[in-house]
Design a protein around this nucleic acid. Sequence first.
DNA 1: CTGAAAGCGCTAACAT
DNA 2: ATGTTAGCGCTTTCAG
Lengths: 365, 365
Amino acid sequence: MSTSRRSVLPSIAPAEPGHGVTLADVALAAKVSLATASRVFSHPQLVREATAQRVHDAAKRLSFRPNLLGSKLRAQQTRILGVMLPTLENAVFAECWRGIEEEAMASGYSLMLVTSGYDPARERERIEYLLRHRVDGMVLTVADAADSIVLDQLDRESVPYVLAYNQVSHHVSPQGTPRGRYSVSVDNRASACEGVKALIAAGHRRIVVVSGAFMASDRARQRFAGYEDAMRAHGLAPLAPVCLPSHTASNAAQIRELMAHADTPTAFFCTNDLLAIGVISDLKRLGLRVPRDVSVLGYDGIALGALVEPPLATVVQPNSEIGAQAVRQLLHRLKHRNTIHDDAAEGAFLLPHILRVAGTVGAPP
Amino acid sequence: MSTSRRSVLPSIAPAEPGHGVTLADVALAAKVSLATASRVFSHPQLVREATAQRVHDAAKRLSFRPNLLGSKLRAQQTRILGVMLPTLENAVFAECWRGIEEEAMASGYSLMLVTSGYDPARERERIEYLLRHRVDGMVLTVADAADSIVLDQLDRESVPYVLAYNQVSHHVSPQGTPRGRYSVSVDNRASACEGVKALIAAGHRRIVVVSGAFMASDRARQRFAGYEDAMRAHGLAPLAPVCLPSHTASNAAQIRELMAHADTPTAFFCTNDLLAIGVISDLKRLGLRVPRDVSVLGYDGIALGALVEPPLATVVQPNSEIGAQAVRQLLHRLKHRNTIHDDAAEGAFLLPHILRVAGTVGAPP
DNA sequence: CTGAAAGCGCTAACAT
DNA sequence: ATGTTAGCGCTTTCAG
C-alpha cells in the first residue's frame, strides 16, 4: 500500500496480513506530511485539532495499525521489558507474571518472557536473547542473587534490572565497591521466623525444615535463617534441614527415614508450597494424618494452597503484587537513568506478607 | 560507537547498556563492507572463510550484539510468534508454555506472551498488541473457537494461527464457506468418553459432570458430549452437568446440595484437574472420603495431580507437547504460506492422551 | 503549526 | 566473493 512499495511491486500482494498500511499512506490520505501524521500519535499537543482529526479519520479508514518495530528501532528505547522467571509451572511465578503483565501493559510497555529452569547455561542464553531484542530493562528471579553469573553480566553492561523474590542485602561487588542491586520481595527471614514462631506457639518443639535445592537458593537459605532465629529465640536447637532434590517428585524415602526414628519431628516447615503439598502426600502415604499426627507449614501462598483440604498453612507472599511492584521499580529507574544519585528506590523493597495458619498446622500429638 | 553517532554526540554516552556497537562498526574494524559483515551472520556460505573469520574476530573484540529490531524491521517477517493463553495460573497452560518456548527458541523464533483471562475485551486488546508487534503468527487458546471475535478477526486479516487445546471440527464461516482453522489438541470427546467408560467399568452408574463456565468453553462441551457417549453406550441416562462459576473458589454449596438427596452420584467427572482438586476438597469437607465414598475423575493431567494423595485420576493431555506441536504446525504454515493448497497440515491435529485411573477413582460404595 | 530530510541497525538486490 | 545502495516504518531535528 505504501506508494514506494506499490510502484516497485505492482503485481504482487493482494491481501497481506500485516496489511502494510504505513503511516506514510495515512499521511497521504489525510493530505499532511509524514511528520505531522506521526506527531498526531506521538505528540498530539503539537498539532492542530482539525488536522489531527483528518489524520485519525484517514487512519481509521485505512485500518492503519502502527508498526511498533519502526518506532522501537528509531527510538533509543524499545519500551520492551525482559522477564526471566525460573518456571511458570510453580504457581508462584505464574501469579507473579499476572502482576508483571498488568503493570507493564498499563504503562504501555511490551514484554518478552523466558524461563530459565534455574539452569545457568540456559540463563545466559536467554539473557542474551533478551539483550538482542534490546529490552530496556529486566525483571528476573535467579537462584542465588549473591552468586549469579548473569547478574554480574547485567551489572557489567549496566542493564537496569529489578529482582523479584530474591532479596538483596547490602551487596558488595567483587571489586569491593558497593553495588546498587534492586529487589522486590517479602522479608524472607523475618516472615519465615514468624511462621516458625507460630508453629512453636502451637506447641511444636521438634520442627524440621524441608527444602528443595537448598544450597542453590538464596531464599531457601534466608528462610532457614528465619527458622533458626525462631528456634533460638525460644531456646530450641535448630535441626538439620532436609533437602529434596526435586520439587515435584515424591520423596517419600527421605521423609520415611526421618519419621522412622525416635524423637520424630512434630512439624515440617517447607520452604515452598509445592514442596509442602508433596510432603503432606508423602506423610499420608506413611499413614500419618495432617495435622493430627504432624503439622506442615508452607511458604508462598499460592492459590492452590487454599483449595486443598485441609487448607495449607503458609506464609503468604503477595505474588502478583511482587511482579507489579518490580515493574514499577524498574520503570522508575528507567525514567531516572540520568539522575546521578537515585537513592529513593535503592536496595531491597519489602512487601508485607501474611501468615495463614490454617488447616495443616495443629497442636503436636 | 557507530561512527556517525560518535561524530554527532562526541561528549555523551560513556558506557551505554545496549552499548550501541553496530554491524557497521564491526565491518569497519574488520575492513570489510557492511554487506559482507551482514552476510557473515545471515548467509555464511556466501563469504570466504578468511574474511568471515576477520569479521567474527572484530565482532568478538567489540562485543558486538546484533540488534534484532533492525533485521526484524527490514525483513518482511519478524520471526516473532504471538502467544495468547487464558492464564498461566492453571498449570495446564504453564506446562504448555514450556513446550512453546522450547520449540520456538529451538527454531530461532521469538515469543510474545499475553494472557486473556477469557475476557473478550482483553482478548481483543491483547491481540491488537500482538499485531502491532507484527508477529508472524499466533498460538492461542480461546474460550470457544466456534464463536470467537478475535478468531474471526484473525481470519479476516489472514493472520496465520494455530489453536492449542481448542479442537476445531469442520468449521464453516458465517458466509457459509468452509474455513481452514488449525488446532492441536487431544480428542476431547473420545478421551472423555474413555475416561467415563473407565468409571462405568469400575461399577459407577450415577456419574455427574462438573464443569466451570460450561456454556463458554468448547472443550467443556466436547468433554460433556464424550460423557454422554459413554453413558448412552452403556444404556445409562446422562445427568445434568453441574456448573461452578469459578475454577478456584470452593463451591461446597453446590456439591452439598447434590449430595443431600437420594440417588446421590457415586462419581464426578470434572472437566479439568484444578476443578477436580477443588471438588475433592469440598467432598472431604462434607465428610466424604475419596475414593471410598465417592470417586473423582479429572481432566488435564497437570503434574500436581500426581503429587497429591490420593493421586488424581485423570485424562492426561501431553500439555507441553501440545504447545510444541502448535508451534511446529504454525511454523510449517508460515513456511508454506505461498503454497496454494496446503492440505497436509489442515484441520485438527490430534495428540494421544493417556488415561490415569489412579487413587481418586475406586468402586462405588 | 507543518513539512522536508536524516537516519535507527540491518538485509537484499544489483553491481563489480 | 565483496561492495554500493536503497530502503523496512517510524520519530525527530531543523526550517519554514
